[in-house]
Design a protein around this nucleic acid. Sequence first.
RNA 1: UCCUCGGUAGCUCAGGGGCAGAGCAAGCGACUGUUAAUCGCUGGGUCGUAGGUUCAAAUCCUACCCGGGGAGCCA
Length: 497
Amino acid sequence: MIYISNLSEHVDQEVALKGWVYNYRSSGSLVFIEMRDGSGLTQCVVAKDDVKEDAWEAATSLRQESSLEITGTVKKDDRSVGGYEIHVSDVRVHQVAEDYPITPKEHGVEFLMNNRHLWLRSQKQWAAMRIRNEIIFAIHTFFQKRGFVQMDSPIFTGNAAEGSTTLFETDYFEDKAYLAQTGQLYGEAMAMAHGLIYTFGPTFRAEKSKTRRHLTEFWMIEPEMAYYDLDMNMDLAEDMIKAIISTVLEKRGKELEILERDTTSLEKTASEPFKRMTYDEAVKQLKSDETARMLDDMAEARRQEEIDLEKEEKEIKKERGSAKKWRKAQIDQRVKEISARIAQIKEDLRNIPSWKESARNFEWGNDLGGSDETVLMMQYDVPLIVTHWPAEIKAFYMKRDETNKLALGMDVLAPEGYGEIIGGSQREDDLEVMKERIEEEELDQDVFEWYLDLRRFGSVPHSGYGLGLERTVAWLCGLSHVRETIPFPRMMGRLTP
RNA sequence: UCCUCGGUAGCUCAGGGGCAGAGCAAGCGACUGUUAAUCGCUGGGUCGUAGGUUCAAAUCCUACCCGGGGAGCCA
C-alpha cells in the first residue's frame, strides 16, 4: 500500500490512496479534496473532464471526513499541502460522512474534549501524538543503549505507600487495593536484581487538582540505578532529556512545524549544560534584588505591550468600516487575538506583585510554590536542577546529606513555564536510618518490611527519578495543557470519551 | 476545598430591563486553481436549571448544575 508520507517516491506515477476527506473545496467543474490517510495530508484535484461520470458524482458527494479511495497521478506542486498533489483519475467512496462535528473553524475546549475521539484526527493533535510516540521510543532507546532493563511495577498496591497523596481505591476481592501512584519502591527492588532498570507505565493520583499540568492518570518513566549517587543521577537525567530532545528535533521537524513550535529554547536545551543549584541558592536568588528588578522590568514591558496593542486595535477597528470582506474577517481575528493577549497581560499584571512578594518573603524551609518556580525559571532558557532540599518537605526514603538537614533530592524544572518534569533522589540505604524515618512519618513498618529487606541484604547507594511523560510532551510540543498530550486524558470531571 | 471568569442556533460569539441576532456549519444554486475558497438564496432557539423581583427578564436577585483559568498538591 502507498501512503501519503511516501508520495515523493512516486512522482509522475499512478497511485491508489485510501483515507479520509480532511477538507473539501469545489469550484464548478473542479473539486479539491484535502485527503489524510494517517501518515499525512495531500491535496487531490478532480477535474470533471478527466474522470468518468460516476467518479465525478462520487467526488461531488463528499463531505468532511468521508472515507474514500482515490486513484491518480502524483505531481510535484507547491500549491498543495506537503508539496505533492494527486491528479485524480478515479474516486471510490466507502462512506459519505454526514455532519462531521469538528469543522475547520475554531472550537471551545469543552466541545473538543467531548469529541476527543474525533479531535485526534485534527492536524495539531495528530502531530502531538506523533511526537509523543517519538519521545516514548527515544526514552526506550536511550535506556536500552545503556544496558537498562525495562521492568514493570504493579498497578494494584495494597497500601497507600507514601501516605501523602490521595489514591484511587478499588475493591480487590473484598479487600482494599489502591492504584499505584509510583512504582519507585518496587523499582528499587528490581535495581538490586538487575543493577540498572526503568519502569514505564501508568500512574494514578486522586488529587482534585484542576490545572494545566495535572491528570489523574498519566504515564511515568522511573529509572532506578544501583551504585548511583546524586551527581550520577543528575547526569543521567540531563543526558536523557538531551537525547529525547535531539531525537525529536531531528525526526519530527514537520510535526513541530504543524504545532508552530519555536524550537530555539529546545535547541539550547539539547546542546548547553543544564543549570544546577542547591535549594539554598535558589532561595537566595528568589529573595535577591535582581529577581525583584526583573519582575519590575517585566511588569513595565507588559504595560508597554498593552498600550501598543490597544493602539493597534483602535487603528484596525477604524479600518474595518471600509474594509473588504476578507480583510474584515482578518481584522476580527486579530481583534480576538489582541483581546486574548490583553486579558493575559492583565492577569500577569495582577499576579506580578504577589509573585514579587512571595519571592521576596520566601522563608527557608518551605517548598517552592508554583509562582516561585515560574519566577526562578524566567531567568533561564535551559532546565534547572534544584538539589539539597530541606529534609522535612521531602519523602521519607530520600537520603540526607552529612548535616542530616538536607535531603539529596533533585527536581528538574523545564524552561518556558513548563515547571517540574522530573523529581528524584538518592535513596536512603541505611537500615536503621530508614526505620527511624518510617517511624517519624508514622507509617506502618509491617507494610515496608520487604522494602527494608533491600537494606538488610546487600544495601548499596542507589538513586532514581521519575519523568512525567505528558509534561514532557507538552513542553516539547509547546502545548499549554497536558490534556492534549495523551489520546484520552483522564482528569477531574472527565472520564469520557 | 478556596478564589475568579463564563454557560444565548450544530460551532464561535454579540446582545446586560421593551419583537432572539451575526459569522461559520447545514440545504439549494453559480463558478476550471481552491488553500478555514468565494458569491446568492433557504431553514435553524426550553437564552444551563429552579425559584424570585417587575406591567415586562436572555438581561436584575438567590440557590444549584456544568465548564474555563488560578491556588494548594504534584510528574
